[in-house]
Amino acid sequence: MKTKNLTLHVWRQDGPDAKGAFETYTAENVNEHMSFLEMLDDLNEKLIIEGKEPIAFDHDCREGICGSCNIVVNGYAHGPQERTTVCQLHMRHVFALGWSEIWLEPWRAAAFPVIKDLVVDRGALDRIIQSGGYISIRTGSARDANETPIPKPISDRAFDAATCIGCGACVAACPNASASLFTAAKVSHLGMLPQGQTERFDRVRKMVAQMDAEGFGSCTNHGECEKACPKGISIDFIAQMNRDFVKAMVTSKHDVEAPNDAE
């Protein structure tokens, strides 16, 4: 079993308005079978014993589906392994790259204020969902399979978009801190299915208005988000959102509700 000592430069910040800075730590005897978060747990135990403030980082499921563990690892959102969240990144993957010095930073975006250290407030994404990312008509209880016919390619595509876990890696990796991929995924997975059709064009207007109100940047079609996305959601959905949005703005006869206040 391989073990290694790692030098970690960790972003420490006391709160949203505090000034942050990097601090350097040594993670000793890191086991190759540890997950990245277990490596941080181990370091935190050491810090607690030494009477120091442990490093705050977000986590929940630790199985790659909750979207909480948000760390930019050496310049890669969620670390260097494609389609992998930080909790599912294991130290053997890191060792394989030959890294002995690692920089850990929070998602950096005006719309994601730092709560503490590596933990950011992703409430902006929740408010985008609240603005229209749901179906407000009653669709009844669970139906029989295939009662509502949906072509297989459409249901597959809708499901591809629906795999978004809302982690915000797209925002973190985007050169403009744009939430286009997140919003596009949420707009598209509902907009492609029959239950979502009724509100399709109002939904895209409301969600884009909220996205803009939160202070995210615009999409400049670099494609970084697609590569950073732990679910590999395609930027084709951004084009789909753009098309629906322009169509909605040009043809819609009524106004939609104003965005919720960004916090």
């Binding site: 930019v72 310049g75 930073e105 005006a110 990796a173 050169p175 744009s178 494609g223």
Partner: peptide, 19 residues
């Protein structure tokens, strides 16, 4: 201007993988 304001603090390390 908007995109610049959307990321007020820059990354120390930033790797481009797609662009």
């Amino acid at each position: 201007k908007r995109n610049k304001d959307a990321r007020p603090s820059r990354y120390q390390k930033n790797v481009s993988v797609a662009t």
